[in-house]
Design a protein around this nucleic acid. Structure first.
Length: 570
RNA sequence: CGGGAUGUAGCGCAGUUGGUAGCGCACCUGCUUUGGGAGCAGGGGGUCGCAGGUUCAAAUCCUGUCAUCCCGACCA
């Protein structure tokens, strides 16, 4: 491909709408352009890269026996009403009407359509197991799309759906798919991990997320280097810590401390010169069944998901200031676990119960209470693990030190069981002639997000760096001076030679100064580069630049150059 | 949906107390250049996001609205 006839609108400066390195690079290198918030055009370069990524995924999917198809992006809303997800999905499901005034929606996912398809076309256990997949658009009307392709409203996904006769079959399909995912992400060179996850809107019995470690990931996950334990921060558990109480706090009754204008644990700790771990903080939450108080150690955060579960409630948010004042009789910042009005429940973290003599708020302006002892000074209704794991905590499995890392979710695999087949009444006949629901699984990979993550993880601030397998071109030839006949002759000879060899080459034949062309080629991320200029002619040697190692190899003749390239690309 | 920021040439930005809009890069023409974002000369390009209002006069002040981005909530 000649650069002059291709379309690569590269940008010299960072576009102001991008913050994330990978997002800036995608725009600067002419891979994508935004049309509206969360809606992108893939430019030729981005599309080439995307296709290569898709092919890797296709190969691995096909090798598990999965079969590709393509389902409609526009779907009748009736199907969603039937499954009940018309309501469940809420505003993320974009609805509209056709000219006949019939309701339709843009597909945020395809469980309904695939289940309907299989229901109508698969009748016997003899046709199972069956795994179907597709690679194409989904649309979710996100409240806040951001970071380029990382969280877009319209995005490309690989989604696969398995159909089995029973649970054992599902387990096998799931296992195969998980292995395919491992192959895919290993081929891409990612450092990743599967973690157990909440099933969310898709639902089902069991699911795992494929997380790739990256500083800028939107998710935080907890991992144990020692035993391999990994879980999302919202799920992770750690062994309760025990901090012995301060000697000075070991008193037979509570003692009031004067803490003028000191509200946060931070402020009070500094004022009293006491470590944050000696505090127990009390937070008031509003729930569907009234107000509750929750306590964790001063240096910790409450895990609201765990709190909901332990308290048996669904909705939870921090009480408004005015309500806190009503309940505690003091301004925000001085809440303690005793003498609380109109409160339904006090739930405390295990760590609070394990130790004694805490410092808490005194429910009085400018005062805190020391020597507070659970069971003596207040009676908790529930003791449970309601804290968020933090770095340094002890692993629940092996007591090793846990660390907390940011990660990006690139894949999610689910055991759905009979969730959709039962709702949509999708059945087959088993060996005994009995009618049974299909046992399903579903498996997704965010493709655009994966492409951007490759760039995020492997590139530096000014140059995209992609593995050869997904780079838009394998090799670039840069003609430094198209006005020089000798240089052009050599460039074109190499271009012809490599093209004949079937190598995906981009040849920069533009009438521009050398610097611009070199910068552009480096920016767009081509792994190998042959520069042809005066030096080539003078020395009668060919130069091959290997981007990954930042090295240059020189060759006396084209044969040895071609041989080396063939070697590098194999 | 709450909080915040920004909308001026293709891109990045400046524009003071209100007085008829500018810089860099890019673009076009010509010549000279070509191993890391070239030089000289000439040139084109704007409904200052949009709609109202105040004023003799609005990019500038006021009101509304739309868009984009960030934080949060939400979702995965």
């Amino acid at each position: 491909m000649k650069y002059s006839s291709f379309f690569i609108p590269s940008l010299k400066e960072d576009p102001k709408e991008a913050v994330l390195k990978s997002h800036k690079l995608l725009l600067r290198a002419g891979y994508v352009r935004q049309l509206a918030g969360g809606i992108y055009t893939y430019l030729p370069l981005g599309l080439k890269s995307l296709r290569k990524l898709e092919d890797i995924i296709r190969q691995e999917m096909n090798s598990t026996g999965a079969v590709e198809l393509s389902m409609p992006f526009v779907q009748p809303l009736d199907l969603w009403k039937e499954s009940g997800r018309d309501e469940d999905y809420g505003k993320e499901l974009l609805r509209f009407k056709d000219r006949q005034d019939r309701d339709f929606c843009l597909a945020p996912t395809y469980e309904e359509v695939i289940t309907d398809l299989v229901k109508k076309n698969v009748k016997s256990y003899k046709e199972l197991p069956l795994t179907l997949y597709q690679i194409h658009l989904k649309f979710r009307d996100e409240m806040r799309p951001r970071f380029g392709l990382m969280r877009a409203k319209e995005f490309i996904m690989k989604d696969a759906y398995s159909f089995d006769a029973d649970e054992a079959g599902l387990d096998e399909s799931y296992r195969k798919m998980k292995r395919a995912y491992e192959n895919i992400f290993n081929r891409l060179g990612f450092n990743f991990k599967f973690i157990k996850a909440e099933a969310g809107e898709i639902g089902g019995n069991y699911s795992e997320e494929l997380m790739v470690f990256s500083e800028y990931g939107e998710d935080t996950i907890v991992i144990c280097e020692n035993c391999g334990y990994a879980a999302s921060t919202s799920e992770a558990d750690s062994i309760s810590d025990y901090h012995g109480p301060l000697e000075s706090c070991r008193q037979p009754r509570m003692t009031k401390l004067f803490t003028p204008d000191k509200k946060s644990v931070e402020e009070v700790g500094e004022y009293l010169k006491v470590d944050k771990v000696c505090f127990a903080k009390t937070l008031i939450y509003e729930t569907e069944s009234g107000f509750i108080a929750a306590m964790v150690r001063g240096d910790r955060e409450i895990n609201e998901r765990k709190l909901k579960k332990a308290a048996g409630i669904k909705n939870l948010f921090l009480a408004k200031e005015r309500d806190v004042e009503k309940i505690t009789g003091a301004p925000c910042g001085f809440a303690g676990p005793f003498g609380l009005n109109s409160l339904n429940l006090i739930i405390i973290d295990e760590e609070i119960n394990n130790s004694e003599y805490w410092i808490t708020g005194a429910n009085e302006k400018d005062a805190h209470m020391a020597n507070v002892k659970p069971g003596r000074d207040f009676i908790p209704d529930i003791v449970a693990n309601i804290r968020t794991v933090q770095a340094g905590d002890k692993c629940v499995r092996c007591s090793g030190a846990l660390s907390v890392k940011n990660a990006i979710e690139l894949g999610h695999i689910f055991k759905l069981g009979e969730k959709y087949s039962s709702i949509l009444n999708a059945k087959f006949l088993d060996e005994e002639g009995e009618s049974r629901f299909f046992v399903m699984g579903c498996y997704g990979i965010g493709i655009g997000r994966t492409l951007q993550t490759l760039i995020e993880v492997f590139s530096d601030d000014n140059e995209i760096n992609l593995p050869v397998s997904v780079s838009p071109f394998a090799l670039a030839i840069v003609n430094l001076n198209v006005n020089d006949e000798r240089i052009t002759a050599v460039s074109e000879k190499i271009y012809g030679g490599l093209t004949t060899m079937g190598i995906d080459v981009i040849y920069d034949d533009r009438k521009l100064s050398a610097g611009i062309k070199l910068k552009d080629i480096d920016l767009i991320g081509i792994p190998f580069k042959i520069v042809v200029g005066n030096r080539t002619i003078k020395n009668n040697k060919y130069e091959l630049n290997i981007k990954k190692d930042n090295t240059i190899e020189t060759f006396d003749d084209l044969e040895s150059l071609y041989k080396r390239i063939r070697e590098l690309l194999s």
